[in-house]
Amino acid sequence: SFNTVDEWLEAIKMGQYKESFANAGFTSFDVVSQMMMEDILRVGVTLAGHQKKILNSIQVMRAQMN
């Protein structure tokens, strides 16, 4: 498990989005775990492969939080 959203993004090789997530207010796992595709688009993730990777990881995160 990760301590910060930045660490999580690095771990899934999506570190290039750290600033975008932070600027959009997605700075805690409570918020990130609620993200939908529209949120991912809003933070500027436009590549389908990256969207899928982030969404898949969020689903895993949700499962671990319950």
Rank of each mutant, 00 (worst) to 15 (best):
Ser1Arg: 13
Ser1Cys: 11
Ser1Gly: 13
Phe2Thr: 07
Asn3Ser: 13
Asn3Ile: 13
Asn3Gln: 14
Thr4Phe: 06
Thr4Trp: 06
Val5Cys: 03
Val5Trp: 03
Asp6Thr: 08
Asp6Lys: 05
Asp6Gln: 07
Glu7Ile: 06
Trp8Val: 00
Leu9Pro: 00
Glu10Met: 08
Ala11Asn: 11
Ile12Phe: 04
Lys13Gly: 14
Gly15Ile: 05
Gln16Met: 10
Gln16Ile: 12
Gln16Tyr: 06
Tyr17Ser: 02
Tyr17Gly: 01
Lys18Gly: 06
Glu19His: 11
Glu19Phe: 07
Ser20Trp: 05
Phe21Tyr: 03
Asn23Tyr: 09
Asn23Gln: 13
Ala24Met: 09
Ala24Gln: 08
Phe26Glu: 01
Phe26Trp: 08
Phe26Pro: 00
Thr27Pro: 02
Thr27Tyr: 06
Ser28Asp: 12
Ser28Val: 04
Ser28Gly: 08
Asp30His: 13
Asp30Pro: 09
Val31Gly: 06
Val32Arg: 00
Val32Cys: 05
Val32Ser: 01
Ser33Lys: 09
Ser33Ala: 11
Gln34Asp: 09
Met35Gln: 01
Met36Phe: 08
Met36Pro: 03
Met37Lys: 09
Glu38Asn: 08
Glu38Trp: 06
Asp39Gly: 02
Asp39Arg: 01
Asp39Ala: 04
Ile40Leu: 14
Ile40Gly: 00
Leu41Ile: 15
Arg42Pro: 02
Gly44Lys: 03
Gly44Arg: 03
Val45Phe: 01
Val45Gly: 01
Thr46Met: 10
Gly49Thr: 14
Gly49Asn: 13
Gly49Phe: 10
His50Thr: 02
His50Asp: 15
Gln51Val: 09
Gln51Glu: 03
Gln51Leu: 07
Lys53Tyr: 14
Leu55Glu: 05
Leu55Val: 05
Leu55Pro: 00
Asn56Trp: 11
Asn56Gln: 14
Ser57His: 14
Ser57Tyr: 12
Gln59His: 11
Gln59Ala: 15
Val60Phe: 13
Val60His: 15
Met61Trp: 07
Met61Gly: 02
Met61Ala: 03
Arg62Ala: 12
Ala63Thr: 12
Gln64Asn: 12
Gln64Val: 09
Gln64Glu: 14
Gln64Leu: 11
Met65Glu: 06
Asn66Pro: 08
Asn66Ser: 12
Asn66Val: 13
